[in-house]
């Protein structure tokens, strides 16, 4: 009887822990499909809230906070496009604090370091004249480190390419400079296999679009 009770208790525990991790994966998958659809500020806000909730419940998982950082980067972009720099900076700060939380929960990895490089890029958008000289080298350094940590990760190449694409030519940017990085990213995206269904896999669609645009612009420039 005693043994049986122990057995039952063991089963109940394993079921509950299994159920919990399944619940976690289900919730993450749900949120990620929501994130894929998101285009506008409000949608990113919603899904960022979902990640915040999951992150608060699962205090040892780093992915919820990582995605929360990513959502805030997207919100920072929409705010920047609307010219609300104060809100843009607030989202950059939030992205940084979410990333800091992710970093506390897991040993550093290529995705986290790439996200750090991305946030540094965001600092440049908010005040290019002042922040450019400080954060451009920091971002570059982080993205290079992310490549060193995992050469197969397409996101650091993508972020480098994206940043160069939008950087004026006089500062060494433009489509020509961006092209090799976007191409590298495209190859890496093709060969990239996420560790799991909830592991980072974002960036491919935008990379393809930027690559097309960059090629078009270069062709147009050649014709002239």
């Amino acid at each position: 009887m005693k043994q049986l009770t122990l057995f039952i208790i063991a089963i109940v525990f394993s079921i509950s822990s299994f159920a919990q991790s399944e619940q976690y994966i289900n919730a993450m998958e749900g949120a990620l499909s929501q994130m894929k659809e998101a285009e506008e500020y409000a949608a990113f806000k919603q899904v960022s809230n979902v990640f915040e909730r999951i992150g608060m419940a699962e205090t040892t998982e780093w992915l919820p906070s990582y995605y929360q950082a990513y959502c805030n980067m997207n919100m920072a972009i929409t705010q920047m496009q609307e010219g609300d720099m104060e809100a843009c900076v607030a989202h950059l700060d939030k992205a940084q604090s979410a990333l800091d939380q992710a970093n506390e929960r897991v040993e550093s990895n290529s995705e986290l370091v790439a996200m750090q490089g991305y946030i540094y890029q965001g600092r440049i958008w908010s005040d290019p004249q002042v922040n450019g000289p400080v954060y451009a080298p920091k971002s570059m350094q982080a993205l290079q480190q992310a490549i060193q940590m995992d050469e197969a990760n397409p996101r650091p190449y993508h972020l480098m390419g994206q940043n160069l694409y939008f950087t004026p030519a006089m500062w060494g940017g433009g489509p020509q400079a961006a092209l090799p990085h976007l191409e590298k990213a495209a190859t890496a995206f093709e060969n990239f296999e996420p560790v799991s269904s909830i592991y980072p896999s974002w960036g491919e669609a935008f990379n393809t679009r930027l690559l097309e645009q960059a090629r078009k612009k270069l062709e147009a420039a050649e014709k002239e």
Binding site: Q23, A27, A42, K45, Q46, N49, E52, M56, A57
Partner: peptide
């Protein structure tokens, strides 16, 4: 306030 996150701590239960 639009888009505030309200949830029960320690669960996934919540809404914007």
């Amino acid at each position: 306030i639009i888009g505030a996150n309200i949830f029960v701590k320690g669960t996934y239960d919540g809404a914007s």
